[in-house]
Computed example of a mutant assay.
Amino acid sequence: MAEQAVQPLVYATYPDLRDKRVVITGGGTGIGSELVTAFAGQGARVWFLDIADEASHKLADALSGSAHAPQYRRCDLTDLNALAAAFAAIDQEAGGIDVLLNNAANDDRHEIDDVTPAYYENRMAVNLRHQFFCAQAAVRMMRKQGGGVILNFGSISWHLASSQLSLYMTAKAAIEGLSRGMARDLGADNIRVNAVIPGAVRTPRQQALWHTPEEEARILSGQCLRERVEMQDVAALTLFLASDNARRCSGREYFVDAGWYGA
């Protein structure tokens, strides 16, 4: 389908994000790649985890001229030993983590009758379990340094009851509960936790697999704003929530969905 012309967004500048140590999961492609780009543009020190080697190396090379060149670390987040090792290595290199963006996910479609116990466990590992254990690893560092920010990425999908996504929606609904619980438990440690809830974002993957002209028309008809949500829109909200401008924001869900109530 033809790409609509979109005016590039000029990000606000948050001086307090300069030199902050930021870890982004699933940072090699899609929304994650824009998060890496946006935080590198703020002068943050960025480490991103992914298994998409080619795209991740290409992104790191493209941003190598940033104030701090983003560092790609290959990590299968469903392997909890590998996850723990990755965070330990970042801690040794960076001396801690200031911001964790739990972005990694996969929204493969499935039919209820086709779901096996093994597939169910895999979908929870891909979309939910790693968010807790990444946060757990980051919290150990954040407590030592007196605070930090954790942003867990959910999805509008379960708010709309989308089709062929029952397991994905189960995980994404749980992420909102996880975020609220963590915010309560960690507030005394000066650690803010929020959930970012993107709508139907125009990513290369979505455009290639599911966002046909008919699907785009359906999405737009259900939104209050008749413009597609771009990856930059999600990154702009994330920059704000990670910054000191959001210092009193915790335990909440923040939507960037153009007011999508379904159609």
Rank of each mutant, 00 (worst) to 15 (best):
V23Y: 06
D79R: 03
V196S: 03
Q7C: 12
L83E: 00
M124E: 00
M169A: 06
M1V: 11
H130F: 01
A235P: 00
L186T: 06
L80G: 00
G32E: 06
I97F: 04
G41T: 09
E227R: 00
A44D: 07
L63Y: 04
G65M: 00
V139P: 12
I156H: 10
I175K: 04
Q145H: 11
A84S: 13
D114E: 11
E253M: 13
L241I: 12
Q206T: 13
K144P: 02
S155P: 06
M231T: 14
A94F: 15
E34P: 01
T78N: 09
N127L: 05
A258E: 05
Y168V: 07
G154C: 05
L239N: 07
D16W: 04
L100G: 03
L225R: 13
G251L: 02
D189W: 06
V193S: 00
A12F: 13
R252K: 08
V201I: 14
N245D: 15
E3F: 14
A94P: 03
R218A: 14
H159P: 05
L101E: 08
D257E: 14
N190R: 15
I219E: 01
A137L: 05
D244R: 13
A217Y: 01
S179Y: 02
A104V: 02
A40I: 01
L220A: 06
G222N: 01
E253V: 12
A94M: 10
L209Y: 11
D189L: 09
R140K: 10
G32V: 04
W260A: 08
S179V: 09
Q207W: 09
S56T: 07
N245M: 11
D189G: 02
R184E: 12
T170A: 15
G262T: 03
R252H: 13
A105M: 14
G177P: 00
D79M: 10
F153M: 12
A84L: 09
I112C: 13
L165G: 05
A183P: 01
L77C: 07
L77W: 02
R18C: 12
T116I: 01
A82K: 11
V126Y: 05
S64G: 00
D16E: 11
K144F: 03
A125N: 10
G147V: 00
